[in-house]
Design a protein around this nucleic acid. Structure first.
Length: 878
RNA sequence: GCGCGAGUGGCGGAAUUGGUAGACGCGCCGGAUUUAGGUUCCGGUCUCGCAAGGGGUGGAGGUUCGAGUCCUCUCUCGCGUACCA
């Protein structure tokens, strides 16, 4: 196939030039650009920090061995276009890239081959960087960050120490230094104080059952377990008690929820976070166990149904189960608990259809009417939510009803539905058979019973969150070691001066035979003098990605995780683009860390990402999700080799709206590729290009040098633009500008196509008009635009990167006459040709006289004539 | 089940506040250039109809001079979530 234009030469040429010039470098406060840098060419002596900043961020990739797929460059192209656009509009743009390079695949490869994960990672990063660079993105590579480099993870560890040395003060609703923690009177001894401190830190050690994945040899966070299987690899996950580090994210639940209102994210994304945080208002109610005096606290969102509570259920793991089980039931209860404990999460969810449970033999007293109710255990009650115990109101809860029916427990209707069946009704109705609540509508009944409980010491108003604390330790090698040591069985932070704490070198990356993490193999590293031991867990991959957007601001700083002036100037992130797969994990964790850093005074904003946009998934040509097994994966290298980076970029944006899911089409790539060819031929004399191609066939070595010999199209001149030409240009400026502001890349490209289709018909092509067009094209297809601008000599300072963005003038867009549509009863019947400022009466007159319209209104009564200025005229006739 | 999003030509998709449905691109049809294929250039392309005209934005109603756009009901698909009391 004939090459539309020599992109294979032009593209590397410009990429090298941008690199050599550091064209896209952003400048931190107090760091003025060199006089010969095009930034200075545009902004003169102005201090960089005096300019309006624009921080535009991509979700950095995990550099996998498979290399880039076409989904990565979708978001990257969108942000690059906007970065170039805003740079031309005069903003000081920060557009960085880096590597989320800790992770399991490199470690698994190490286990298989013995090759150090560092080496695998370096190779993959190099490949990713080559691929990303081949797309001509305007990243400031001087700020490249890599989570696996000691200079980076030193600060990940440092942030962990900030968490370790802080607590959440409910009075101020903020994270504070642990030193501000006040001890209650009964906490007097050093020992007790220490324990009290450790209980309040934002990081703490837990021995609770965790999600253990035997296949991966590590625990996983709740968020990493999908349907009882690991999110990575889909391996079974079982529950197993282990010592783990936790982060107290639940303390921030309310703020994480509230502050969603202050940021500009899509509703669906905010909703996902809200659902994950899962706030629900209700009450805790205390039931007393008959004969034993033990108290069981339950959480309910429907305290108004307390009169309908006919039994209670504890989760099998509930701490009181042993104490209250009667002799007669002991065996059955033990068997049930054992079975429940053995079940994986997967089994527990899969078997959810059929409710199971066992009676403990004990009864509790319903505080509102002193009736005894049987206490059961069942695994449909989760130990991890609320208090791990419920009052069952089968008449008004689907799950309780199902359970009650199966085990023939009493059902008592206490809420009357406004209409229809009251049994099983879970909405708002009217209380019945409910003592002092009877007759009250649900909201009032809730308030009244809650007050009653509170007054009688039988309960209180409570808010519950689904959000759990973040399980932060992993039994892996390739992650950040914890800056923690154990002395006499108690944890201590290591000194900041000892950071970064490097992982030990190992020959074998597998967990030990005893099931300890791989770091435990390095005896010399683990064992310190005086019997002090290093923590052998490592941090999860999220640690590095929780704060990388801050490191970019000052990537080389080895005094601080980010310099104060740089942080103040650049934050927040103005636009963050990435996939929905990070809707709850990364985005929630990062917001949490950011809030802690904010509370402690290390950053200046409460939220990190002001605006966030999700790109849609790109499907294969068959409309299916791309996957190796389907064989429908598109390799960017191949597409770039065949059509060039500009065509690739353009196509990814032309496919459709950024946020939509859309299928790949190689024919579609050819379409935009042809467009770039037409642009090329708009500027270049095609016969000179044909001669060039011939010459290159004979002497391939002359390819690069021969480019300089290409002639401009003979129609190009310094002629004054005609009105028609200016109109086409200014219409294009207007449309492209507005579409870029609204991130409508596909329609912006369509406007560029419309212009080029128009311009190719012109006999004279004024240099000024075509030059301005190249400015518009530059963000989308920067290599081609730069090359043609250089030939046209319209790029001052040797690059289009800092050319002023064109501004349209409405004066060029006015029409002398317009074809004005005429409708009859809302149906288009004809057109009248009028001047733009024709008065209403005259338009009416002309419309009624219009020949084509006549046949539809003759003999009818004209009821109304509606003239919509600049739109149309509609005649209502009957 | 619940939450969110989307349904427009053969395909990807356009269509400020309700105002000429189908921009732009693909594909297809025809023509020009070419020995030919490819490339390029020009024209056509929602649908029924010879035409006048009719129909048409998942479906059914409604509001309006006028609805892809607003309202009610409904169907389908995608994503998220799921015994959260």
């Amino acid at each position: 196939m004939r090459r539309q234009y020599p992109f294979h030469l032009i593209e590397p040429q410009w990429q090298n030039r941008w690199d050599a010039q550091e064209t896209f470098r952003a400048f931190n406060p107090g760091e003025p650009p060199a006089a010969e840098h095009p930034f200075a060419g545009r902004h003169g002596e102005a201090a960089p920090e005096s300019l309006e900043k624009y921080y535009i961020l991509d979700m950095f990739p995990y550099p996998s061995g498979a290399g880039l797929h076409v989904g990565h460059p979708e978001g990257y192209t969108a942000t690059d276009i906007l970065a170039r656009f805003e740079r031309m509009r005069g903003k000081h743009v920060l557009h960085p890239m880096g590597w989320d390079a800790f992770g399991l695949p490199a470690e698994q490869y190490a286990i298989k081959t013995g090759q150090h994960p560092r080496q695998t990672t370096e190779e993959n990063v190099a490949n990713f960087k080559r691929q990303i660079k081949s797309l001509g993105f305007s990243y400031d590579w001087t700020r490249e960050a890599n989570t696996t480099e000691p200079g980076y993870f030193k600060w990940s560890q440092w942030i962990f120490l900030q968490l370790y040395n802080s607590w959440f003060n409910p009075a101020t609703n903020k994270a504070e230094s642990i030193d501000t923690l006040k001890y209650p009177n009964d906490v007097a001894s050093d020992e007790a104080k220490r324990a009290y401190r450790d209980e309040h830190r934002l990081t703490y050690v837990s021995h609770a059952p965790v999600n253990w994945c035997p296949e991966l040899g590590t625990v996983l966070a709740n968020e990493e377990v999908i349907d009882g299987k690991s999110e990575v690899g889909g391996h079974p996950v079982v529950r197993k008690p282990m010592r783990q580090w936790m982060l107290r994210i639940t303390a921030f639940a309310q703020r994480l929820l509230d502050d969603l209102d202050t940021i500009d994210w899509s509703d669906s994304l905010k909703e996902m976070q809200r659902n994950w945080i899962g706030r629900s208002e209700g009450a805790e109610v205390t039931f007393t166990v008959q004969d034993s005096g033990e108290e069981i606290v339950v959480f309910t969102t429907r305290p108004d149904t307390l009169f309908g509570a006919t039994y209670m259920v504890l989760s099998p793991e509930h701490e009181l189960v042993d104490a209250l089980t009667t002799e007669a039931q002991r065996e059955a209860v033990a068997a049930y608990r054992e079975a429940a404990a053995r079940k994986s999460d997967l089994e527990r969810t899969e078997l959810a259809k059929d409710k199971t449970g066992v009676f403990t033999g004990a009864y509790a007293i319903n505080p509102v009417n002193d009736e005894p109710v049987p206490i059961w255990i069942a695994d449909y009650v989760l130990s991890s939510y609320g208090t791990g115990a419920i009052m069952a109101v089968p008449a008004h809860d689907e799950r309780d009803l199902e359970f009650a029916q199966k085990f023939e427990l009493p059902v008592r209707v206490v809420v009357e539905a406004p209409e229809g069946e009251s049994l099983g009704f879970t909405g708002n109705g009217t209380s019945v058979e409910s003592g002092f609540l009877t007759g009250l509508p649900t909201p009032e009944a809730k308030a009244k019973i809650t007050d009653w409980l509170q007054e009688n010491g039988k309960g209180k108003r409570t808010i519950n969150f689904k959000l759990r604390d973040w399980l932060f330790s992993r039994q892996r090698y390739w992650g950040e070691p914890f800056p923690i040591v154990w002395r006499d069985g108690r944890h201590e932070a290591i000194a900041e001066s000892e950071l970064p704490l490097l992982p030990p070198e190992l020959d074998d990356y597998k967990p030990t035979a005893e099931g300890d993490p791989p770091l435990a193999r390095a005896a010399g590293w683990v064992n310190l003098p005086d019997g002090v031991l290093r923590e052998t867990n490592t941090m999860p991959q999220w640690a590095g990605s929780c704060w990388y957007y801050l490191r970019y601001l000052d990537a080389q700083n080895d005094e601080r995780f980010v310099g104060e002036a740089a942080e103040k100037y650049w934050m927040n992130v103005d636009l963050y683009v990435g996939g929905t797969e990070h809707a709850v994990l990364h985005l929630l964790y990062a917001r949490f860390w950011h809030k802690v850093l904010f509370d402690l005074g290390h950053v200046s904003t409460p939220e990190p990402f002001q605006r966030l946009v999700n790109q849609g998934i790109i499907l294969g040509e068959d409309g299916q999700k791309m996957s190796k097994s389907r064989g429908n994966v598109i390799n960017p290298d191949v597409v770039i080799g065949e059509y060039g980076a500009d065509a690739f970029r353009l196509y990814e944006m032309f496919m459709g709206p950024l946020e939509m899911m859309k299928p790949w089409s190689t024919q579609g790539v050819e379409g935009v590729y042809r467009f770039l060819g037409r642009v090329w031929r708009l500027f270049i004399d095609d016969s000179s290009y044909k001669d060039y191609e011939q010459a290159v066939t004979v002497a391939p070595d002359s390819a690069e040098a021969g480019l300089a010999e290409l002639k401009l199209h003979p129609s190009i001149s310094d002629a004054e633009p005609t009105d028609e030409q200016l109109k086409a240009l200014h219409a294009c400026i207007k449309k492209v500008t507005e579409d870029l502001e609204g991130m409508r890349f596909n329609t912006a490209i369509s406007a560029l196509m419309v212009f080029s289709n128009e311009a190719s018909k012109w006999d004279t092509r004024p240099r000024a008009v075509l030059g301005t067009f190249l400015n518009l094209l530059n963000p989308f297809a920067p290599h081609l635009a730069e090359d043609l601008a250089a030939r046209l000599d319209t790029a001052h300072g040797g690059t289009l990167a800092y050319q002023p963005w064109p501004v349209h003038d409405d004066a060029y867009l006015v029409e002398d006459t317009i074809e004005f549509p005429v409708q009859v009863n809302g149906k288009l019947r004809g057109h009248i040709v009028i001047a733009p400022d024709t008065p209403r009466e005259e338009i009416e007159q002309l419309a009624l006289e219009c020949e084509k319209v006549q046949q539809f209104i003759s003999g009818k009564e004209i009821k109304k004539v509606i003239v919509v200025p600049n739109k149309l005229v509609n005649i209502a006739a009957k």
